[in-house]
Design a protein around this nucleic acid. Structure first.
Lengths: 209, 209
DNA sequence: CCTTGTAATGAATGGCGATTCAGTCCGCCG
DNA sequence: CGGCGGACTGAATCGCCATTCATTACAAGG
């Protein structure tokens, strides 16, 4: 059934044949990495979870490191696309930040494995696999910063707060929330915390009425 | 010269003989881990940097993992002790948070290697080496939370912001700042950012005048 | 029903590096 | 001075696992 696509050449050059299998491996990898961490994960574990032979993985990915890269890239792209779409409908900077925060927490809250990978492996990669994942993060920061500047121009946010600092506080607060949630019993919905956090950060940035 | 201490039995049972050597190994480990990350670091690298034979390390530490634990523990203890001392002199909750933030950034800003270990390896350990380092983090959070509650009782902070959320924002903002700094060119003093960050967070928590 | 090309398999390989341990060195005591 | 005890050394070991590749399975076309 997955033969259908074989005619067109629309596959990523470096990735095997069946997109379905490619995706299954990626999904398995995220779960395995989340469970054990990148370095404690064995390719054979990923293969087993994806119901594929060890060697097959190398038809789809160059090596172990590239699997991690692909997983992060995949998730990040998904997130940024969703952000793009959802924010397109909102004009007010305050509402835009609210929406973004909710999306941030909901995205990670909906997929524990992904969240785990982001809170641990992603940081590693940001430093050691260098510019690749780092740029994705910068794109996110830049988005926040531009919203902040819009709010400042509209007179809603204080101008003496630099957009860089504001973005840092925004991202940091959400990020810490995700980490706490992961380390906790997870008996609450992560997304539910968005409002309270945004409340603090927005209040800290807003001009007094 | 390090023979002097040999008479008393004040050594950590599990750690070799000379405290000076113990410390040198720890210091070397922090630098090596910071440079390459825990998993990409070789014991022999640490040994070389500490000017010690590979085997000697095992006279002072049970295994590689325990070196990381010891390094984190050491740094964290130092930090919490400093916090304890410095905060003892300050009563006002707002000032206490300011001081704590400054200390947080100054401590990590003064030692890039340590900061690196905290931003990357510590998170790993928090999840995978479980309760050990996790507790240290909780201690920090609890400190912040208690300050927040004090501020609420004194009527300085809004009561509708939960202390947990406030601590999250506080820690998260600082933490993100450290990460940015590490990934950036580091052409500014990390400690200098403390005021701007605390400004946002405090304003977000304060009652309106 | 052969032939061929390609995906998939999984056992075997090879290298790496944590850990060990047989030996060395050195200070001290009798 | 000889012998003991313990710190220190670093080369050798040993297990692990990413990666490879000879082999198999299979689809499509003739």
């Amino acid at each position: 059934m997955q033969r259908v696509e074989e005619q067109n050449g629309k596959f990523d050059a470096s990735s095997g044949r069946s997109p379905e299998k490619h995706h299954r491996i990626l999904q398995a990898a995220i779960e395995v990495f989340a469970e054990n961490g990148y370095f404690n994960s064995r390719i054979s574990d990923i293969a087993k979870k994806a119901e594929v032979a060890d060697g097959t993985i190398y038809l789809y990915f160059k090596n172990k490191e590239q699997i991690l890269m692909a997983a992060i890239d995949f998730a990040f792209t998904l997130f940024m696309d969703a952000a793009q779409t959802q924010l397109a409908e909102i004009a007010d900077p305050r509402q835009r930040l609210r929406r973004l925060a909710a999306l941030h927490l909901e995205s990670l809250g909906a997929n524990r494995g992904l969240a785990m990978v982001f809170q641990t492996e992603f940081r590693q990669s940001a430093k050691f696999l260098a510019q690749f994942s780092h740029h994705r993060l910068i794109a996110y920061f830049d988005l926040v910063r531009s919203i902040v500047r819009d709010g400042q121009m509209a007179g809603q946010f204080r101008r003496e707060v630099s957009d860089k600092i504001a973005a840092n506080c925004f991202f940091g607060a959400l990020d810490a929330m995700v980490t706490s949630w992961l380390l906790s019993e997870r008996d609450y919905k992560l997304g539910d915390a968005a409002d309270a956090i945004v409340d603090v950060i927005l209040t800290g940035m807003e001009t007094r009425k």
